[in-house]
């Protein structure tokens, strides 16, 4: 059996455009640490199919590769890393207000 890279379901919030993640309870969170880390390909397909029905809340859902860390899912690629924070030129986006 081939190795499956764990994933989260993510996309952008319809009204705000902010990056959001699917949680275990099928709700949407702005915080990657609250996202459900999916380790099974069938479940990943089911969760993505569910996300695709949530068109009143989310735009462009997709599966993003993650690794498991003690605090929660951690991005594998720098693009996903930027999506958890915001731009690097101003403290805007998710990092806004954080130290």
């Amino acid at each position: 059996m081939s190795h499956f890279t764990p994933k989260v379901v993510t996309g952008n919030d319809l009204l705000l455009g902010d990056v959001i993640y699917l949680t275990e309870t099928d709700s949407w969170s702005r915080d990657l640490l609250l996202a459900q880390l999916i380790t099974d390909p069938d479940q990943a397909a089911r969760k993505l199919a569910y996300a695709e029905t949530q068109t009143h809340k989310i735009v462009g859902p997709y599966l993003a590769d993650m690794q498991a860390a003690p605090q929660g899912p951690m991005p594998m690629h720098f693009r996903e890393g930027f999506r958890t924070r915001g731009p690097s030129n101003y403290r805007h986006g998710k990092q806004e207000g954080l130290l």
């Binding site: 952008n12 705000l16 455009g17 902010d18 990056v19 735009v59 462009g60 693009r79 930027f82 999506r83 915001g86 731009p87 805007h92 986006g93 998710k94």
Partner: peptide
């Protein structure tokens, strides 16, 4: 109107 990485 675009949808970018963090926002519209």
């Amino acid at each position: 109107l675009y949808l970018q990485l963090h926002a519209y």
